[in-house]
Nucleic acid binder design. Structure first.
Length: 951
DNA sequence: GTTATCACG
DNA sequence: ACGTACGTGATAACT
């Protein structure tokens, strides 16, 4: 006779936990192992005594079950799970996995439904099998039949109790086991919040069912009852029926049953041994594995036997074969089991844990969590802080997750030393090289943790950056990712701390329970997003490389660069501000004189009316689509010789821009903590792969005008021992274009170090190199840029103020002289039309949805993007790789010099004077060799006491 | 929140 | 006949 044992894990764990309530077992590391120990003992006892041939262990899931759908209050008042149990569950699961015992878990169903279904099917399909449901839970009585028995484990002095149909009927005083639910329906069950009928307890229920047979029949014969009891049955008839329904175990759960899956087999001794050591279960270990001390078993124990279908390398067993792939289940496949209360496809999740988000706020709990984290291949984390700006942020909490559906929240005290002590506990986890750290926008977390002296080691995985490489033109917030890929809308941060514009609330003031839920959810979601995004990303091999070898290492570099910051000469800026103020006032006075009235010069609306209506400067003045006069720089420049006011307005605009955007704004962004400026480099904004910079934007500090470039004098070295070093790629985009197009003449010009714009001018204007005038060179330079942007005659004409026909002639001439470039351009556009995207040298994609549009404007725009994106993007790829290499060099050589800025084709350093020469040499070498192109690359280097001098 | 303008590569 | 260079971010005005 075969023996199938089905265990109700949660019921047994609870029972074990409370059995040890007075004298809990604690390991030397503070882990409470009572529940695991109790469960393990019970399990081993039954294995030894009963020698089952088949076995399975069922868990509840944290997901709402159909009973919740039916009855909202179901189990609602059950008190929260003790943390010791929460911590125990993963260990129990590991124990079972190590013993090669299958876990039975199905979202939407409780353990008793799963056990009931399997028990009934096993009995039906196998005459030669006896089924034992191992549980202390009385509800199971309803399932008992000839070959299905309840097996109550020994407890509190009482021995094992095996109950067949006779025993059940005797126990409840009923005629058939099915009436168990009628009894429960009447008496209710306080633990599960099944109400029953008021005034009816076990004894009364027994008596009534003995007499009437069922709840339904009792209600039908309510007239035969008397007094208060009659009243209650009448008034609570519905409640009684519902209670009966709730107590009914559902035996049609959509799980296939295959006896092969549940066959007993050998343990994985290596895993088991490690686990028992960890739990410090010495006696058990001896019983199970003999006397070998820890650490010597792996060589001596033969390879563990594995089940036919249970071989997954991660130790998870594919119990239900195809059903494990539940995400891919077509609805039709589950149609044969339609459940009227099911709103979604049943989901089988072998390792979904029972409870979701846990508060980890004691040393013991932290110890357990850390211990468990250290066993993972990858973990997900999220920091909660007091500020959006990482440099100014204090840790409020840390959320961690290592499997979907479960997360842990560790709150941090406001006291800095206490917080430091807690984060120090987690250091071994963060510094474990074997664990991949997953996070959304991980640069922020890296920066926050670095303030607490935590330098993360091992692989990083940023879901934001993964998505940036999948769809660079989209947005990459976690909320959007969750909605797109998980079909789930997370709790918004605004619900916790209010909008960021208005006096944004403090994370510290949020209730612990709420922040726990919010933070845990973030970690959980991010953890779930990772495999989904990675699966999509993996469709393109180069994307995975790009993420792992460029963007992830770069995010660490950027964290370093941002933390370092830049020193600003505030005294200088203060002086400059005063001068600008004075000049602005003078200019404004002159403008008012010239205009004859006072008005707001900063208002394009007012300004347009003054210029074009009052002064009638340009009779054919152009208007914007909103009906206003255009007063931009290019318009006013053309009026410069018409009227003095145009020049003055341009001056005023420049002064105001410099003052408000730079001179006055920059000092306000100095960190009170470091006294330096810390920009944010945005890694997932620019569609081409470039970085952007904000708060403040240090990538648009003026340089083109004499007054503007003065501002760069305010960017200074950290002290007298340092100087500013600036290294920029020379003509990187043109070189990349020449390489892509394989244009021999242009490649040769670069390889010979010739002036590329002059060379272009000579060719385009058909003169010898020494006949090229500065005007010709200027035009050629503009043309070269224009080519990269996807030239049009109109655009070129506008840019250098020539006629459209003249522009067209120049372009035609360019194509004649550089036919390879023209060929390359058409090839890129063609390939974009075919594939719908273009790629950079490292395979970074840009999708061009309008490339085949009927709308010419949209299509032309897409075509210009097709030309520009691979060039601009490849240059971005190259400087990113260079940054990683340079930072690596600085770190491995332990230099005092630091990278402090990056501006598309330029790297800026705070260079320690004694290191200047080696730094210059290495930076140059690493920049030009970052990515191999079939064209010579060059850099320009400058050193000075400020950023301007370094150019 | 959108528009116009202007700073950079 | 159309409507036009590529990629960003900050500010002030206005709705």
């Amino acid at each position: 006779m075969k023996k199938l044992f089905l265990l109700d894990a949660m019921a047994l764990i609870y029972r074990a936990h409370f059995a040890f309530a007075k004298t809990p077992r604690i390991t030397s590391k503070g882990l409470n192992t009572s529940a695991v120990f109790g469960f393990a003992n019970t399990l081993l006892e039954v294995l030894a005594k009963e020698k089952p041939t088949h076995i399975g262990v069922a868990f509840d899931t944290p997901k709402p079950t159909f009973r919740h759908v039916q009855f909202e209050a179901y189990k609602a008042q059950r008190q929260e799970q003790p943390e010791d149990i929460t911590i125990a569950i993963p260990y129990v699961k590991r124990l079972l996995k190590a013993m090669n015992i299958p876990l039975l878990i199905l979202d939407g169903y409780e353990a008793d439904d799963v056990i009931g279904t399997i028990a009934k099917r096993a009995a039906r399909d196998h005459d030669d099998m006896e089924i034992y449901m191992m549980t202390p839970d009385k509800d199971y009585g309803q399932l008992v039949e000839e070959r299905i028995k309840m097996y109550k484990p020994a407890f509190m002095g009482k021995g094992v109790e095996v109950m067949g149909p006779q025993e059940i009927c005797d126990r409840w005083g009923i005629k058939e086991v099915g009436q168990v639910i009628d009894i429960l329906g009447l008496m209710g069950d306080a633990v599960d919040n099944i109400p029953g009928i008021p005034g009816i307890g076990e004894k009364t229920a027994q008596k009534l069912i003995e007499e009437y047979g069922s709840v339904e029949n009792l209600i039908a014969n309510v007239d035969k009852l008397k007094g208060k009891q009659k009243e209650n049955v009448q008034n609570f008839a519905q409640q009684g029926l519902l209670s009966k329904e709730l107590a009914t175990i559902y035996c049609e759960v959509p799980v296939p049953f295959d006896e092969e899956d549940l066959k007993m087999c050998d343990s994985n001794k290596e895993e088991l041994s490690a686990l028992l050591d960890e739990l410090e279960f010495r006696t058990l270990r001896k019983r199970l594995l003999g006397e070998e001390p820890a650490g010597t078993t792996s060589e001596t124990v033969a390879a563990p036997a594995t089940k036919p279908k249970a071989a997954a390398s991660n130790g998870q067993m594919d119990l239900f074969g195809g059903l494990v792939e539940e995400k891919k289940l077509a609805p039709s496949e589950t149609d044969d089991i339609t459940l009227d209360f099911e709103t979604r496809a049943p989901k089988l999740d072998i390792h979904t844990s029972v409870h979701q988000y846990h508060l980890v706020n004691t040393p013991e709990l932290r110890q357990s969590l850390i211990h468990f984290l250290s066993l993972q291949d990858e973990i997900c984390f999220d920091t909660e802080t007091t500020a959006l700006d990482a440099v100014e942020a204090d840790l409020v909490g840390l959320a961690l997750a290592y499997q979907p559906g479960e997360a842990f929240y560790v709150p941090f005290p406001e006291n800095r030393e206490e917080a430091q002590a807690i984060i120090d506990e987690f250091k071994p986890v963060f510094q474990n090289e074997k664990i991949t750290k997953i996070a959304q926008n991980i640069k922020y977390d890296l920066m926050v943790l670095s303030q607490y002296g935590v330098e993360i080691k091992g692989k990083l995985y940023d879901t934001m950056l993964a998505h940036y490489l999948i769809e660079p033109e989209k947005r990459h917030n976690m909320d959007i990712l969750a909605e797109t890929y998980l079909n789930y809308t997370p709790v918004s941060i605004e619900e916790l701390i209010g909008k960021k514009g208005s006096k944004q609330g403090n994370m510290r003031e949020v209730e612990l329970e709420k922040i726990k839920e919010y933070a845990s959810e973030d970690a959980d979601i991010t953890f779930r997003l990772k495999p989904i995004l990675h699966e999509i990303l993996s469709k393109n091999e180069s994307s995975v490389k790009l993420l792992e070898e460029v963007e992830m290492p770069l995010t660490q570099v950027l964290a370093d660069v941002e933390m370092e910051g830049v020193r600003l000469d505030t005294d200088f800026l203060k002086l400059m501000s005063k001068e600008l103020e004075k000049d602005m006032l003078e200019t404004q006075t002159r403008i008012f004189e010239l205009a004859g009235v006072e008005f707001n010069i900063s208002s394009p609306k007012q300004l347009g009316e003054i210029l074009f209506e009052k002064l009638k400067l340009d009779p054919k003045a152009k208007k914007t689509k909103t009906g206003q006069y255009m007063t931009g720089e290019e318009i006013l420049s053309k009026l410069e010789h018409e009227h003095e006011i145009a020049r003055k307005i341009l001056d005023f605009r420049e002064l105001q821009k410099l003052k408000s955007t730079y001179v006055d704004a920059l000092p306000q962004l100095i960190s009170p903590r470091t006294g330096r400026i810390h920009t944010s480099f945005m890694q997932a904004v620019a569609v081409t792969g470039r970085l952007s910079s904000k708060d403040p934007n240090l990538q648009n500090i003026p340089i083109r005008t004499p007054r503007g470039r003065e501002i760069r004098k305010a960017f200074i070295p950290k002290n007298d021992d340092f100087v500013i070093l600036s290294a920029d790629y020379s003509q990187i985009e043109l070189r990349i274009m020449a390489a892509f197009a394989k244009d021999e003449s242009m490649i040769e010009a670069f390889n010979q170090g010739r002036d590329i714009h002059a060379t272009t001018a000579a060719k385009v204007f058909n003169v010898s190199l020494d006949q090229v005038t500065s005007d010709m060179r200027r035009k050629a330079k503009t043309v070269n840029f224009g080519i990269i942007y996807g030239v049009s005659a109109f655009g070129l004409a506008q840019q250098i103020d020539i006629s459209r026909s003249e522009a067209k002639e120049i372009i035609d001439s360019y194509w004649r002289e550089f036919p390879a470039i023209k060929r390359y351009m058409s090839e890129v556009v063609l390939s974009a039309r075919e594939n719908g995207f273009v790629e950079t040298i490292l395979g970074r994609r840009r999708y061009l949805r309008d490339i085949n549009s009927q709308n010419m404007t949209d299509r032309n725009f897409a075509e210009r993007n097709a030309v520009n994106a691979p060039i601009q993007g490849s240059a971005a790829d190259m400087i990113k790789v260079a940054m990683i290499k340079v930072n690596n060099f600085i770190k491995t050589e332990n230099l005092k010099s630091r990278m402090i800025l990056t501006v598309h084709d330029e790297l800026v350093f705070d260079a320690y004077k004694p290191e200047l020469e080696i730094l210059k040499e290495k930076v140059n070498e690493l920049m030009i060799s970052a990515i191999e192109f079939p064209v010579k690359m060059e850099t320009g280097m400058g050193v000075g006491l400020n950023w301007l001098e370094a150019h």
